[in-house]
Design a protein around this nucleic acid. Sequence first.
DNA 1: CAGATAATAGACACTGTGTTGATTATTCGT
DNA 2: ACGAATAATCAACACAGTGTCTATTATCTG
Lengths: 201, 201
Amino acid sequence: MRRAHHVGGDRRVRRTRAALSEAILSLLLERPYETITIQEIAERADLNRATFYLHYGSKEELLLAALEEQFDSLVAEGPSASPEQPIWGIEEDIQQTLDYVAEHAALYKVLLSERGTAYLMNRIVDYIAAHSESELRASLPPGAPTVAPLPLIARHFAGSFFALLVWWIQNDMPQPAAEMAEVIKNLCVGGLRWGIGLDQS
Amino acid sequence: MRRAHHVGGDRRVRRTRAALSEAILSLLLERPYETITIQEIAERADLNRATFYLHYGSKEELLLAALEEQFDSLVAEGPSASPEQPIWGIEEDIQQTLDYVAEHAALYKVLLSERGTAYLMNRIVDYIAAHSESELRASLPPGAPTVAPLPLIARHFAGSFFALLVWWIQNDMPQPAAEMAEVIKNLCVGGLRWGIGLDQS
DNA sequence: CAGATAATAGACACTGTGTTGATTATTCGT
DNA sequence: ACGAATAATCAACACAGTGTCTATTATCTG
């Protein structure tokens, strides 16, 4: 019955890394990235400063690792891979993403407005684009004509979704998640269907 | 006839600041922001380090100033404010923006992929959104029904435009600017017209 | 030209970094 | 439950870069 063995090596390592990630993210909620020192991170994680260097070479490295975890847990909620309703499976993802982000509003507001944007944006937009492109590909007859190449349509969709997401977060989520999801569905998925010519029928 | 007087105070100040901006941007082309020191910036600008502090309080401050100039010169090329062809004036902007970015490809590749993204993205997306929103407003009958609130449609447009722009730059501009502009026009402006119901006719 | 102001040069204390070697504590496999 | 392996601690180190200062020189503006 004793599981959770070998989940990723030494238990001490896992605990230490988790503490460091948590420390930097919690510091990020309080003040800008540049002003945060490795000393403070170690301090807040209740670890010796030398221990930090046992795991990461720089603040940057730790941040990327922490963001990666963050992204993974966002995606984990994510794409339940719709059955036979191709494009419309995306709508579920939109709803789930908004719900997830709303739960972690404070953190995402910081991540998106400051340091993390470059990384998170690339990561999220890439992910959404890849995800929606494969859905698109599956839902289209092979040689069907589209307004533009599929990867660009996917990017178009991902970009507008992300922009609306950022707007929503940075404006302190003026609408409830469900309502915003509706708007995004209308605009993005509508635009998507238009992009692949489904609206011409 | 002696103009260019009083363009912004002391000539020395203008020269110094310009040198600093140029220095940080050129360093940014060579290596990541974090590794650049104020010492080096001053050195490359051929200025005493103390002079730096006479003008900026930190590296960050200088970078923001430099980005602001960069953004201004991008916008300067920009919106020739279409006469009576509302939405279609946007098409010109798209073309001009791509041309401008293509000219400064190396710099923008760095700015968009690294440090600058957060700032530039907010700045550019805000600008495009505001610009397109006012064009939209002008081109629509007051009470006309739309798919979503105007500001969100504008954001949707700006986001997808920006995402495609980033994709294009980061993939080393696989298509010529003109061709990419066509794609963007098709997708974004098409989506925009669809968004405000012009496609239902 | 003269007064004002910007830039320089060198020095200063200070903060945070990255590394080291010796020591202690925890964990994992058997 | 034991013992070998290895992670974490602690104190100390040289070092790089920061931010500030004062006195001096160079340059601009009216």
